[in-house]
Design a binder for these strands. Structure first.
Lengths: 347, 347
DNA sequence: GGTTGAAGCGCAAGCGATTGCGCAGAATGA
DNA sequence: TCATTCTGCGCAATCGCTTGCGCTTCAACC
């Protein structure tokens, strides 16, 4: 069913049909009703491609994320999607699996679609891509990675602040042997977090020891990382994870190793994904308000009704510590041989 | 940058440029090289809309799922995406949150995009949509919901079989009081599962008691459902969940209630999402091979090289039981007052 | 009653590609 | 050498829709 067919049946020109369907221009009431009726009867569905080609834009937002499996990214996407839907926009999402190559491909794909806006919520960066985007005329939002530009908004989370809270908190509980578990340590934004940890730890000089372990961004990755950590001989009193998703695996590795959480080892995550509440024990974590991030993205990309969209160009998100059951006072001393049974556990 | 601009600079016609870029038709070596070089220099990027408008199709697959948060759906999506990418296709995904309205909207959106194929991996059904799709000329795959048609492939999972295994297994362990936790009991495919449970239970007449509770498709939902179940006064010796995602919440509700798993209550999930391994205790579940489902979808939608795509029209997936640590012999007798401490736990 | 202005609608030019057809010129065969 | 077949490439139509511009028609006003 094309516009023309409707036009024919309604006895008007395609232009008029277009005007009726888009509610633009002046059209008589009688004509409008007739066209609408015929369009419905014919189950007319506009061809998005023709529409965008002719119209220029496409009422579609693009979002590129690093790992859709990680609820952190999914949550942000969903917030954006909800906002967009409400504004009559659609959202398409692409996944990169932290591969710069995929980032480039996804970006090309998105750009070819003449989107109304593009958000990069990724941890990897492909300088060429970032730069290209910054020069583009379409509104872009970068999360974590990014660079200034005429049409770009940058959203960042103050990871250091969160990490500092975590380390201080653990220190106060007597922890002196901390391990950091992360993934893709080679990617800059992730490295920043690692460095935040290191920096936070460095503030305490007395007998503080730390170690690191890496895995993939998944429970499996956390599991593997923890095993290699334990195998390395370093016995941490607390493990800090770059995110909750990996922490899920850390918990299991510890459990299998006969280590009780938090009695023998404390564990803290990052992000406060909803799953963290359901871990056993419930995960102490750092809340990164994903709805805030999502809203920031959509308000930067969607043609906001009131304020002009170039209000804020740089947004910083402040995370905060959430204490649950996976952390507690550092074990008294001798970690003792693995295998010790767990005892009481807090509610 | 348009085709024409490249053509101008290369001193050829747009047609030739198109042929070079798409590797179709005959083009001289020298010309090809020149065009390619200029295209690269100009950072040319084809306009997808123009391309699809002119070409007819769009090398893009559409996937609609009910709940992206539930790893079950995400896993399927990722398999399809991987297959598609390899074939040079892109995939767009839409989420319905189990709302038929959203299904209709998403479908319209997809159809307007002249996709190469569409997969509906959803639990809700909107008869009008299903029917409309079945009449369409584009290849469609339905999972769980569906109806035959010239271009449609139906993929189903034999839920009953899995449910039967679960109930038999639990029965053998002495369980006689089973509860079923699910979501959206009003949607037919989900009802099928519920009925499967009921039917499986009905096979055992001796003193078998069962109950049900509902929540949303999330850990939260499982949590709420379990609380209301417990509040209702029915004390199950085993809880069967419609999926692992909800089971995660069931586990927590039980724990909070002072009930040990599997000592006091056994829990089994469904799907075998990777998270189920990381639950505490690791979840006994039923494996639903999502890669198989995903591959089935992509082979039905992608222009397969060898076999003609209309090979198989109906695919049935067979699930199988996976026993882990969340199930065990039924508690001896008197459930005893809540609050009893957990003791040893299997590895 | 003629002038004016707005309302209602059609014309036609694109938007940026793809593609069947046809035409030169080169290569091939007799 | 002439006829024939390829090769390499341009022409122009087309895909379905949007939109600026301009032409009627008709009510309103002086």
């Amino acid at each position: 069913m094309t516009l023309e067919e409707i036009a024919r049946q309604a006895g008007v020109s395609p232009s008029t049909v277009s005007r009726v369907l888009n509610d633009t221009g002046r059209v008589g009431e009688r004509t409008r009703a007739r066209v609408l009726k015929i369009a419905k009867a014919l189950k007319y569905r506009p061809d998005i491609h023709a529409r965008s080609l002719a119209g220029g834009s496409s009422r579609t937002l693009g979002v590129i994320v690093s790992n859709l499996q990680n609820p952190f990214f999914l949550d942000i996407f969903r917030v954006i999607e909800a906002d967009a839907l409400q504004a009559g926009y659609a959202v398409v999402v692409a996944n990169t699996d932290y591969r710069p190559k995929q980032l480039a491909a996804a970006t090309q794909w998105m750009l070819g679609h003449r989107l109304a806006g593009l958000a990069l919520v990724v941890s990897e960066k492909e300088p060429a891509v970032i730069e290209e985007l910054a020069g583009e005329e379409l509104p872009v939002v970068f999360y974590d990675v990014g660079s200034p530009g005429p049409n770009v908004t940058n959203v960042k989370t103050d990871y250091y602040r969160g990490m500092q809270r975590v380390v201080e908190y653990l220190y106060a509980l007597g922890h002196r042997r901390m391990a950091f578990v992360d993934h893709h340590a080679d990617l800059q934004p992730l490295q920043d977090r690692r460095r935040s940890f290191l920096k936070a730890v460095a503030r305490f000089s007395d007998g503080m020891a730390s170690a690191e372990a890496h895995g993939s961004d998944s429970p499996d990755g956390g599991y593997q990382a923890t095993r290699s950590l334990l195998d390395s001989g370093f016995m941490p009193s607390a493990i800090i994870c770059v995110n909750d998703f990996m922490a899920l695996g850390v918990l299991r590795a510890l459990r299998e190793h006969g280590l009780a959480v938090p009695e023998d080892v404390s564990v803290v995550g990052y992000d406060n994904i909803s799953l963290s509440k359901y871990a056993a024990p419930a995960l102490t974590t750092v809340n990164v308000p994903r709805d805030q991030i999502g809203h920031a993205v959509s308000s930067a990309l969607l043609p906001s009704p009131g304020a002009s969209r170039d209000a804020v160009r740089d947004i910083v998100i402040h995370p905060e510590l959430i204490v649950r059951d996976s952390t507690g006072p550092a074990a008294v001393l001798s970690p003792g041989p693995p295998g010790g049974a767990a005892e009481g556990r807090s509610s």
